[in-house]
Design a protein around this nucleic acid. Structure first.
Length: 496
DNA sequence: AAAAAAC
């Protein structure tokens, strides 16, 4: 078994790792760090929770150790899809770069440019950014990416989901082709494949399975409910949610200590958070419409335990590393099956046990099917601890007056009936997220490139990035005008 | 049916 000390990392980095208490690299770290240190491109196929972040920060710090940043010319660049993820990478970087003199800047939206500008002006070794803000800085002429030696794309599949791929391509094209690229994605969708073929050069491909501690430690439970009317679904689910919270808080083993409650829509996040608060629960919402400072504060509160219930949109579904989350609730069944895996992966982390509830109504059938087929397993059904007043679950409507309210109004917080949190024995059967195949492919063949000329002539203006494999035809950087510069603002906007 | 990311 390798240990970090076998990995040729900078002694100062090793010291910082030691201080964190880790001794053994995770599979993605063991696979990615050695080639990354050699300067090779790396294609890492790994989920969050596999130690992915350290697998690029550690070699980056080591490799950047020598050399010095120049004003406005960062030496490395890390791209992350959300502000929170970027901030998390920055934190990780701070931890491991303690002993070094490396300067870093975090470029994310929602905060002022001023401070970010100042840092860039002084020169940074590491730039950690979300695509939008990075491009904004670039457009203002505050930033040159021609000095980037190492570029990291984290959570590429999520970037794809969020429509960032064109931005990512533009950013790739602003950096020198001589850069080293470390590229991470949980899946290899065709579009991701295309990007990696285009921008990675003879990468070392490392594919690791979802960490056991994630899948095997999560108890998944499906709670089904048939509302008397469709419009009652949300209200009923809020009742069910509280009933489960009450029941599981009182459990002897693996009791509920805290929870992330995922909703599909931002308005629903607000409604559920408000409703929980109204019922005396310590809950706060988090989603993209909230001010960044508020988002940060809320997340910090949840991390340090002062906030017990985080009601979240999918902004918090992926990548966020929050240890000690005992429960995850899918208040809504996610409409993208992969999001299910990401959401429930927020619990059961670092070897701890976790419970993931999914509240479903008959309308969710086809999404549940998609989830079942993705995880290649059934989600065990658990008991619904809430009984609607005056009747069974599937009984015909008797309280129509409540149902007929317009949707907006009825989804406002009006929940009032006390949950009947009888001690229905929790029916739990452990389910596992299907393991992803493990494949280590240390050295795939070089890509065959013979379309250099076509690439060069493409209307988007970027020269073919693949020229790298077919000889030193591209000389220097001067002939390359970043694509987005050639487009007007309107064109850029229309492209998006 | 949506979320996220730039002013």
């Amino acid at each position: 078994m390798t240990s970090f000390s076998d990995l040729n990392l900078d002694p100062k980095v090793l010291k910082a790792i030691e201080a964190t208490g880790y001794t053994t690299p995770t599979p993605i770290q063991a696979g990615a760090i050695p080639p990354a240190l050699e300067g090779r491109d790396v294609l890492g196929i790994a989920q969050t929770g596999t130690g992915k972040t350290a697998s690029f920060t550690l070699p980056m710090i080591t490799r950047l150790g020598k050399g010095r940043a120049r004003a406005r010319m960062p030496r490395s660049l890390v791209l992350a899809p959300t502000r929170e993820l970027a901030a998390q990478v920055a934190e990780n970087f701070d931890n491991y770069a303690k002993g070094s003199r490396l300067k870093k800047a975090l470029l994310i939206g929602g905060v002022s440019f001023k401070e970010q500008d100042m840092l860039i002006d002084r020169g940074v070794d590491v730039l950690i950014a979300t695509p939008g803000r990075l491009i904004d800085h670039f457009e203002r002429g505050k930033l040159l990416l021609t000095g980037v030696e190492i570029m990291v794309v984290d959570e590429a599949d999520r970037m794809l989901d969020m429509g960032f791929i064109p931005d990512i391509e533009r950013i790739f094209e602003m950096t020198p082709f001589t850069r080293q690229t470390l590229f991470f994605s949980a899946t290899m969708a065709p579009e991701i494949e295309r990007i990696t073929n285009k921008f990675l050069s003879n990468p070392v491909k490392i594919e690791v399975e979802r960490q056991n501690s994630t899948s095997e430690t999560i108890t998944q439970i499906l709670v089904e409910h048939t509302p008397k009317a469709k419009s009652m679904a949300a209200k009923d689910k809020r009742e069910i949610l509280r009933a489960i919270i009450e029941r599981d808080s009182a459990k002897a083993d693996d009791p509920l200590r805290n929870a992330i409650i995922f909703c599909n829509r931002k308005v629903e996040v607000d409604v559920v958070a408000k409703s929980l608060k109204k019922h005396g629960y310590n809950a706060e919402p988090i989603h993209g419409d909230l001010e960044q400072s508020h988002r940060t504060r809320t997340l910090d509160g949840f991390r340090d335990g002062s906030l017990k219930f985080l009601v979240a949109s999918d902004v918090a579904a992926r990548g966020l590393d929050i240890p000690n989350v005992s429960h995850v609730f899918n208040f809504d069944v996610p409409s993208h099956a992969e999001d299910y895996v990401h959401r429930i992966g927020r619990t059961g982390r670092a070897g701890k046990l976790g419970t993931a509830y999914t509240l479903a109504t008959p309308a969710d059938g086809k999404y549940l099917d998609a989830i079942r087929s993705l995880v290649k397993a059934d989600i065990p059904k658990g008991e619904n601890p809430w009984t609607p007043p005056g009747g069974g679950n599937a009984a015909p409507a008797t309280r129509e007056e409540e149902d007929d309210k317009p949707r907006r109004t009825s989804s406002r917080t009006r929940s009032r009936s006390k949950p009947k949190s009888e001690d229905a024995p929790p029916v739990e059967a452990p389910a596992q997220v299907a393991a992803v195949e493990v494949r280590h492919e240390p050295a795939p063949q070089p890509q065959q490139r013979n379309d250099t000329q076509q690439n060069r002539n493409r209307s988007r203006g970027g020269r073919g990035r693949n020229d790298r494999d077919s000889g030193p035809r591209v000389v220097g950087l001067g002939d390359h005008v970043p694509t987005f510069i050639e487009l007007s603002f309107d064109e850029r906007r229309d492209e998006a």
